[in-house]
């Protein structure tokens, strides 16, 4: 990430205080979020209701400070709203609410819901002959939730090539993923890639790689020592 952009996002994030326990979650996702909104997603503040837009679903609703910061940097949110974060009447809370924030595609917070919604969204876009793609961000710890695995399996069977799942792997899962997270998707028929979650070019290549006839899983690894 360019130093100037990193500084701008850090400045925006610092305006949201009071959820420090999730700083690590926010710090882990910021590069993925920036690459998606800066270089991949076909959506702007003027097209949040366009039926052909790309959809980004933050399944891992914890630590959305990075998400809000990127949305603010890209013009989806008024910067001054960041100062109202978690106050009564603010649209910005510790878990995002799609009804309160234009451009936020799903309300999330309870883990393990985004992938099911993402599968349905990808199916709906296919049924409606829409061009949009669906990107779902989950955490490696969140993958403990069994509901994810219903969605992972059926997405592979249905060949949802409009669907990309980004797993931000910051080693949060209490019992780990023996053999690697990508393996879990690979056996269900997904196209998979594992990349450095700080390498913007690598993330971009993985997000835009062709995967005809099957969904894509991008595991973005984050070294724990980077945010301590």
């Amino acid at each position: 990430m360019l130093a100037s952009m990193r500084n701008e996002l850090a400045g925006l994030i610092e305006r949201m205080t009071g959820d420090e326990k999730h700083d690590w979650a926010a710090g882990s996702t910021i590069d993925v979020l920036w690459v998606l909104y800066d270089r991949v997603l076909n959506v702007t503040p003027d097209t949040v209701d366009d039926p052909d837009r790309d959809r980004f679903l933050l399944s891992k609703g914890h630590g959305p400070m990075s998400y809000y910061a990127v949305l603010a940097a890209k013009g989806f949110l008024d910067h001054d709203l960041l100062d109202t974060w978690t106050s009564f009447g603010s649209p910005l809370g510790q878990h995002p609410d799609r009804v309160l924030v234009p451009g936020v595609e799903i309300g999330s917070g309870s883990l393990g819901h985004g992938l099911g919604l993402g599968v349905g969204t990808a199916l709906g876009l296919r049924a409606r002959r829409r061009r949009g793609r669906v990107f779902v961000l989950v955490g490696d710890g969140e993958l403990d939730e069994g509901s994810n695995h219903e969605a992972i399996a059926i997405a592979g069977r249905l060949g949802l090539d409009r669907l990309t799942t980004v797993v931000v792997d910051n080693s949060s899962a209490s019992h780990g993923w023996p053999g690697g997270i990508a393996r879990r998707f690979d056996v269900e028929g997904w196209h998979t890639a594992t990349v450095d979650g700080r390498d913007h070019d690598a993330l971009h290549r993985a997000f835009t790689a062709a995967h005809p006839g099957r969904p894509s899983a991008v595991v973005a690894t984050i070294e724990p020592e980077e945010y301590t």
Binding site: G116, G120, A151
Partner: peptide, 8 residues
């Protein structure tokens, strides 16, 4: 979940 996504 899929039903919710379809509805979206």
């Amino acid at each position: 979940g899929v039903a919710g996504g379809l509805a979206l």
